[in-house]
């Protein structure tokens, strides 16, 4: 091995580290944000709504791509998130029509929007640089290759958006913590002391939609749900105190992203799926731990 080769391989190694670093930062930010929102979704029994939203934002994404020709802009985020809200309103409308069957209403509305999205993808996918596979799998490994410059720093282009959403959600939860807590545990009481449940409900849904759109490209349409549900559910098995659920959930998100990512580096396969598998292992571990504690 001559000098040039050594330098080359070192440089490659260093680049790899940087790439890993950016991927991990972006995905951890997404995962932590999802876990924060997921806690309240879980308490309000709305978890399956994320499944619906993550499917039904697809037409919004395709339409926005077609209009703007670019993936990385505000329009995509706005228009696609709007479809998340539309799903929620739409579901509420159908629900009234079919005698309060929430589950059926959810199923009807999101399968419709997702089907429209898939048709749009197959018809116009080439212009919009999208294909059906990427809808399902996400493209986490592309994060470090699409960059922009902030001052002299070269950062992944998803970083600013992701950070902004993270800060927004933290801000939302800090401000509305008491209200969210009351709404989540006792809606009737919340109404009786004059909290307008509908506003907070739709704000929560709006934030979930924005985050889902931001994660969509990275994780694919189905696995986004995992980020919302696994960490809070695992934390819920270990503790029943809301603050602790939030902290444990955040910790689990961070660890599962790191472990899952390096598992996929080591073993191959999809990185997004590996993260979910690790989260599943955490959940099983929490369950076993609880059982063991129970017996002694």
């Amino acid at each position: 091995m001559n000098g040039a080769e050594i330098i080359y391989s070192l440089q490659k190694r260093k680049n790899n580290c940087m790439q890993d670093f950016w991927i991990l930062i972006v995905v951890i930010l997404l995962a932590v944000t999802a876990s924060l929102l997921g806690t309240f979704l879980m308490l309000r029994k709305m978890t399956m709504l994320t499944d619906a939203i993550s499917h039904s934002i697809l037409p919004g994404i395709v339409i926005a791509y077609l209009f703007s020709g670019k993936k990385d802009n505000f329009l995509v985020l706005l228009l696609a998130s709007l479809f998340g809200l539309i799903t929620a309103i739409f579901t509420a409308w159908i629900e009234k029509r079919i005698k309060n069957r929430t589950d059926a209403a959810t199923g009807i509305s999101f399968t419709f929007l997702f089907a429209v999205g898939i048709i749009l993808v197959t018809l116009f996918g080439e212009q919009a640089d999208l294909d059906a596979d990427c809808v399902l799998f996400g493209e986490m490994l592309y994060i470090p290759f699409e960059t922009l410059l902030i001052g002299t720093w070269e950062v992944p282009r998803s970083l600013p958006t992701t950070t902004l959403i993270f800060l927004l959600v933290v801000f939302f939860i800090v401000i509305a913590y008491r209200k969210l807590q009351i709404i989540s545990f006792d809606e009737v009481f919340a109404i009786s002391i004059g909290i307008s449940v509908a506003i907070w409900h739709y704000l929560l849904i709006a934030l979930v939609s924005v985050l889902t759109v931001a994660s969509f490209e990275v994780l694919g349409s189905v696995l986004v749900i995992a980020l919302f549900v696994f960490p809070p559910a695992t934390a819920f098995l270990l503790t029943k105190e809301l603050k602790k659920i939030i902290y444990v959930g955040v910790a689990i998100s961070i660890f599962s992203v790191i472990l899952g990512y390096y598992f996929s580096v080591w073993q191959g396969g999809s990185s997004a799926a590996s993260i979910v598998l690790v989260q599943g292992v955490f959940l099983a571990g929490a369950l076993l731990y609880k059982k063991a504690m129970h017996q002694t």
């Binding site: 029994k45 189905v222 749900i225 919302f228 549900v229 559910a233």
Partner: peptide, 10 residues
Amino acid sequence: DAIMAIVLAF
């Protein structure tokens, strides 16, 4: 609903 989401995603 949480259980359904967990099983589905996993």
